[in-house]
Design a protein around this nucleic acid. Structure first.
Lengths: 315, 315
DNA sequence: GCGAATGCTGCTCATATGAGCAAACATGCC
DNA sequence: GGCATGTTTGCTCATATGAGCAGCATTCGC
């Protein structure tokens, strides 16, 4: 009876979902009452035999978002669907789009938005619609004067976001990491820098991404760290960086002396904000994402389905 | 408006299918009337954004079955779902199961069933339930005395099917292919063989599979043909074999002189039957399946989703 | 073998949904 | 601008579906 009922529920589901028959019609085909058919269909659903997927680049996974809010204590979560995805690039595009959508939807509109920089943030800026908000000022929250060919990406990101919202962009005129602590303290003391840092500290909302702790990190690419530096950080437990600062699985700073030479908003300030939005997607970033969420670095997370699920499994 | 409506329909679909909200509730969330929501959902379905899959080893694809009947003129078609499939083996098992189910369901119950032999048929016999029918006699329709270690598979298949139905099995005591035409004519003239062939010709229903035209063919494995023979057949246009006879894409016999040396039911007899069931599944058998269907060798086809779709595309 | 307990069945009733339609609206054409 | 045409909207009404419940059967314990 267990067996035959399961088979029946599949037959019923075929007729219901694929042939668009009513439960009544199915009843007469399978020689059952329509109530029995309804129960078989409910059973098929419960057993997980019916899989419904929304296949669209803008599709989100609301049940997963809810679980992230409830189980991981996030204020909000945006999870993009990976259904029908073709590659890592598309995943990043979808996530950036979702982050842009979310940013445009938050109320009250933040007067000042603190942002980090990197590939992800750049993509978010590209996906924002012109006029996405009215008069949002953008301020960089970590050192962004890039040393190499990528120069300008960081500035472009901030300027684009501000411009599209009809606001002003304020850049942080400082390297991300300095070689000597004295230099760092000196540059922080400079009025041109300290004013920006103060503005960053008083922003109403933050938008940032996180990097992986490997040789492909933007900090390596930009020349602030060597591959060996990163390997050493990994050995010490680093899982990735958030606004230029490397953290371990618990969200703690991995290397305090390196951190002291890093210019930008502190993680404590980020944790104190009630609107810090992290945009983290991709198979390689599960570990950082987990560290960020666990240590309360963000209140809102924009991510992909696979990362979200790993976040729920970890828990 | 085109754009924003599409996005709205996705939001509505998320709330409807993932959050189990009513159209009314969705209406108040998205500030729409419930009728608009209903239309958005219908639109999302039409646009193919909603994908519903039945994930179960016994699941079938009824819409594809219907199209096969309508567009390819089959009396009946059984298409097993490939959703959640892990490998070729599972595909074969699912198809064999479906063929067994179908065989047990046909009415009127055939008094005599003609069968071929091979891996597929053997699996079908294994999947049949004991007592699947009452008194069905089984007769082999092509030469089945195997020359190698596989000896017995052919016989076992026929005996198992008959036994489980409480009927008699009649074996065809002849090689599949003979080296000389004279021998073939002589063996056909023998009463022990001709009686079986007559019985085969008068069967009420046929169940057979098809082989690919390559070195993995059972006919090569059994020693009836060499790898070179098969290559030569392929060169002449062979796409596979049906009950030991090689056909081209149009279902025509590829090599008449080889065919004349092949013992078993003719394709003409198979085409004249109103109940000839072909069981053909697997990525390698798309071409044979198409030839079988196109040339009317079967009235009923049991196959997998991918093969079925290729059959509809060909058309 | 008998009663209790559990589960299954077919029902009533409330609710959710889809079909069809008239009015409002936008669109193109002169 | 004014009219005709096609599209979208909000509705009524018929239908499909799910919740809840009482009766029936089956199982289990003793």
């Amino acid at each position: 009876m267990i067996e035959s009922d399961e088979l029946l529920s599949i037959r019923a589901a075929e007729l219901y979902y694929e042939e668009d028959k009513t439960q009544d019609e199915i009843g007469s085909i399978l020689r059952l009452t329509r109530w029995k058919v309804g129960r078989l269909l409910a059973q098929a659903k419960t057993n997980g035999f019916i899989r419904i997927e929304i296949v669209h680049p803008r599709a989100r996974r609301l049940p997963i978002e809810r679980r992230l809010r409830e189980e991981r204590g996030l204020k909000d979560a945006i999870v993009v669907s990976t259904a029908g995805i073709t590659g890592e690039e598309e995943l990043q595009a979808r996530t950036a789009q979702a982050a842009a959508d979310y940013l445009a939807s938050i109320r009250p509109i933040p007067r000042t938005l603190g942002i980090s920089w990197g590939r992800t943030l750049y993509e978010v800026s590209e996906h924002l619609k012109d006029g996405w908000s009215t008069g949002v000022n953008v301020v960089q929250i970590n050192g962004g004067v890039s040393l190499n060919r990528r120069a300008g990406t960081a500035a472009t990101t901030a300027v684009t976001i501000a411009q599209k919202a009809g606001g002003q962009a304020t850049l942080l005129p400082s390297p991300a990491i300095l070689e000597r602590l004295e230099t760092k303290l000196a540059i922080e003391g400079d009025r041109a820098v300290s004013a920006v840092l103060e503005m960053a500290a008083s922003a109403n909302a933050y938008l940032y991404s996180a990097g992986t702790a490997d040789e492909h990190s933007v900090l390596v690419d930009s020349g602030y760290l060597t591959v060996d530096d990163v390997h050493e950080l990994v050995r010490k437990g680093a899982v990735g960086d958030v606004v230029g600062r490397y953290i371990d699985a618990d969200g703690n700073i991995v290397d305090p002396s390196l951190d002291a030479r890093t210019v930008g908003l502190s993680h404590d300030r980020l944790r104190a904000s009630d609107r810090s939005i992290a945009v983290i997607a991709g198979a390689g970033k599960h570990a950082v994402a987990n560290a960020v969420v666990r240590s309360g670095l963000c209140t809102v997370l924009v991510t992909d389905e696979a990362t979200a699920i790993s976040l729920l499994d970890e828990h």
